[in-house]
């Protein structure tokens, strides 16, 4: 056996993980080859210094920080809150449709009365825990309640009479007799909500070039296929916060203020604004339209690095 072969087995020799013949061979070789013997010595020392590496103490508030994280409301809950609060939604059917596409499974079952469609809603699988709780009726108006964590969110449906609601608590489903007209209207509204064009390559390059000018970057690649920007895990003190920006509607350059401006749509815009404004390196929110959930923001240097990497 040559030195090369011997050396490749030294790690296993250290572990005493070789058959006796091989072990003998190696020991014989080590007795006659000082280079390999030194090699074994170095390897042994290295492995032993790994084992002796100083243990590092976790921060003193480690447990406390875990408690804090556990108490933070989940994203889903925030979506729910956004959708169902305040409880007296003006366009309940629209809310139903919107909710249906995001959170709930909708099944059109049957026609129960002329002009009405039976719509069954059921929590989507990952939301099984947050079960539908109960449907109560107040003055002929059914109120559907969902148990979401500790809170109960209610959805009022004034255009549906109390006889037109069926609840199956055991499967967590509720069926509503929705006026067909209204359902169609709601679907149309949902369909017609601001569409989400993707940012073109051309715009992205243009945008990035403007960044380059502004920030003094020089090594921009020629083409940047970008249709979304992800900003994830920005450090803010100890906390990691994530923002993901998708569905960019518009990217332009404000030549008066000399800043790039991105307009995008975000269902959780209120939350995103909160996060972005706590991340000065990330950018600055200019404007939020709560009706269309559109956010306009000025991204900063960090964003550029992301854009350029894409």
């Amino acid at each position: 056996m040559n030195c090369q072969e011997i050396r490749s087995s030294l790690s296993r020799y250290l572990e005493d993980d070789l058959d006796p013949d091989m072990k003998n061979l190696i020991e014989q070789h080590l007795g006659s080859c000082s280079n390999c013997a030194r090699e074994l010595d170095v390897l042994r020392k290295m492995v032993s210094s790994l084992g002796k590496l100083e243990k590092v103490e976790p921060p003193f508030d480690f447990l406390e920080s875990i408690h804090e994280r556990l108490e933070r409301p989940s994203k889903v809950k925030l979506i729910l809150r956004r959708m169902f609060y305040p409880p007296h939604i003006k366009l309940p059917i629209e809310a139903v449709v919107v909710a249906a596409t995001v959170l709930l499974v909708v099944r059109i079952v049957s026609f129960i009365s002329p002009g009405k469609v039976m719509v069954t809603m059921k929590p989507a699988p990952e939301e099984e825990r947050k079960r539908l709780k109960v449907a109560t009726r107040e003055e002929g108006v059914p109120v559907i309640k969902y148990e979401a964590g500790k809170e109960v969110v209610a959805l009022k449906t004034p255009s549906i009479s109390k006889d037109e609601v069926e609840v199956e608590p055991e499967v967590g489903a509720v069926s509503l007799a929705v006026p067909r007209e209204e359902l169609r209207k709601a679907e149309a509204m949902f369909e017609a909500r601001p569409r989400l064009p993707t940012i073109t390559e051309e715009v992205a390059v243009q945008l990035a070039n403007q960044f380059v000018v502004e920030q003094g970057y020089t090594d921009l690649k020629a083409s940047l296929p970008v249709d979304s920007l992800y900003f994830d895990e920005f450090e803010q003190g100890r906390q990691h916060m994530g923002v993901s920006i998708e569905r960019i509607l518009k990217a332009r350059y404000n030549s008066i203020k000399r800043v790039p401006v991105i307009t995008y749509e975000d269902e959780m815009s209120w939350n995103v604004v909160y996060i972005i404004n706590r991340m000065p390196d990330f950018g600055q929110v200019v404007n939020v339209d709560k009706n269309t959930a559109r956010v306009r923001m000025i991204p900063k240097k960090v964003s550029l690095e992301y854009l350029m990497e894409k």
């Binding site: 590092v56 920080s65 875990i66 994280r69 450090e235 990691h240």
Partner: peptide
């Protein structure tokens, strides 16, 4: 990295 490690370890427990 200390901060990052602390964050990841907390995430593991969560």
């Amino acid at each position: 990295n200390y901060t990052e490690a602390s964050d990841l370890a907390q995430e593991a427990f969560v």
